[in-house]
Amino acid sequence: MPVNYYIFLSIALFCIGIAGVLTRRNAIIIFMCIEIMLNAVNLMLVAFSKMHHLKNAAVDATAGSDGQIFVFFIMVVAAAEVSVGLAIIVMMYRNIHSVDVNFLNRLKH
C-alpha cells in the first residue's frame, strides 16, 4: 500500500482525537481521545517502519524494527499514564463529585 494512505488515515484519526478533546468536557472521554491520538501516531510509526524495511531490507535484515520498538514503548508509557490518569480522575470525582473539566478552573486564580 502507498504509505501516504497510512499518513492520511493517521492524520484523520489524530484530528478526530483533537476534536474530541476540544468538544467534550468529560475527563474520561478526553482521556479516551488522547488514546486515539496515541494510536494514530503508533499506526503511522508502524507504517513508516514497514516502508523503511521494504527499502533497506537488502542492506540490513532488521531495518525498520526500531519503529516497532518505539510503538511498543509508547504502549508501555500509555499504560502507565492511563493507570495514573484514571487514579487522578477518581480522586477528582471524589473531591468535586464531577468529572467535568470545566469545574477545574483553578488555573484562573
Partner: peptide, 14 residues
C-alpha cells in the same frame, strides 16, 4: 482568554 478552563487553553493551543 484566561478563563482558567483547560478546554479553552487547548483550543488556543490547537
Amino acid at each position: 482568554l484566561q478563563s482558567g478552563q483547560v478546554g479553552n487553553y487547548i483550543l488556543l493551543m490547537v
